[in-house]
């Protein structure tokens, strides 16, 4: 165990409320959500920012020490990558998204170029109990509750926004509609229920006028998938309904045919029973027709 100063703390780690000065170790459980410290090795001209825990974006440069979290990504217009089965201090991994998700990149879109190369500096440790001298691997899901397998009662009307793909206008539509609903005097709650951890979209929902906005990251999930997307949605619906909003707006991140579990949510009959309207965001006419 040794001390390490972090230059930047990625938004994906926000559940851990890390300090700039952390302690790291050399044992890596290699689980989704494990918080690791890395040093940026490469330089990028595009897609070169990191979303911080504040929600602000900061340019990454070689030498920056960053805390991020292990996770996978399957983004057509970004990176595809997975969590490594083992890690040693000094290994090289890649930054898979702007939220600080770290893993092994297996493919990238020419639009974003090769990802940042990162040298692993250590497994960030947490000390959850007073007086604890031996740290445990920090993980963004440590304090997350159990996901719900059944829909709760008392869910207000739900508007679901789905897209043909990433960057098909879902978040812009959510924000624009939330603003209009709020102007009509409605209390709106919102959530992003699928995708890879990034605060930007839920912050946009709040900025547009949502009383509250939540995402799967608060539930300890880095990247949604078919196996957990419906349970995440049920859990977020229940949490948002506790505030008695007039309306819940759900953004289903990525596209209908992506790997983040949008299809599992749409297949769930109990979730479908709560959805009063569904809007399709489409990039082009063919996509609109096929979706």
């Amino acid at each position: 165990m040794r001390p390490l100063h972090l230059d930047k703390i990625a938004s994906v780690t926000r559940n851990c409320a890390l300090d700039r000065d952390v302690r790291v170790g050399d044992e890596y459980p290699c689980r989704e959500g494990d918080v690791i410290a890395v040093r940026i090795l490469s330089r990028k001209g595009t897609y070169n920012q990191l979303e911080l825990v504040s929600g602000r974006f900061s340019n990454l440069k070689p030498g920056d020490t960053v805390a991020g979290a292990l996770g996978h990504r399957r983004a057509l217009q970004g990176y595809a990558g997975h969590i490594p089965s083992e890690i040693k201090t000094g290994d090289t991994l890649q930054m898979l998204n702007m939220g600080g998700v770290i893993g092994v990149c297996t493919s990238f879109s020419p639009e974003v170029g090769p990802p940042f190369e990162c040298e692993v500096l250590g497994q960030v440790l947490s000390f959850p109990f007073l007086g604890q001298r031996v740290g445990e691997p920090a993980n963004i899901g440590r304090q997350a509750g159990t996901l719900r397998e059944k829909i709760a009662g008392g869910i207000p009307p739900v508007l679901a926004i789905v897209g043909t793909c990433m960057n098909s206008g879902k978040t812009a539509a959510c924000a624009s509609l939330i603003q209009e609903f709020a102007r009509q005097g409605l209390q709106v709650a919102a959530a992003k229920v699928t995708g890879v951890s990034l605060m930007r979209d839920t912050l946009a929902m709040v900025d547009a006028g949502a009383r509250t906005a939540a995402s799967f990251t608060e539930l300890g999930i880095v990247t949604t998938q078919r196996s957990n997307a419906a349970s995440i949605t049920r859990t977020l619906l229940a949490q948002l309904a506790e505030g008695s909003p007039d309306l819940i707006v759900l953004e289903l991140g990525d596209g209908l045919m992506g790997d983040y579990g949008v299809d599992a949510i749409l297949e769930a009959a109990d979730i479908k029973a709560t959805v009063g309207a569904l809007v399709l965001a489409a990039s082009d006419p063919v996509g609109r027709g096929a979706a």
Partner: peptide
């Protein structure tokens, strides 16, 4: 729309995005 309606049984209330 075809996938949403045929596979998932969801009527589409509106279409938005760059196609509009």
């Amino acid at each position: 729309m075809k996938l949403l309606q045929d596979r998932f049984g969801y009527p589409v209330a509106a279409i938005t995005g760059p196609c509009t």
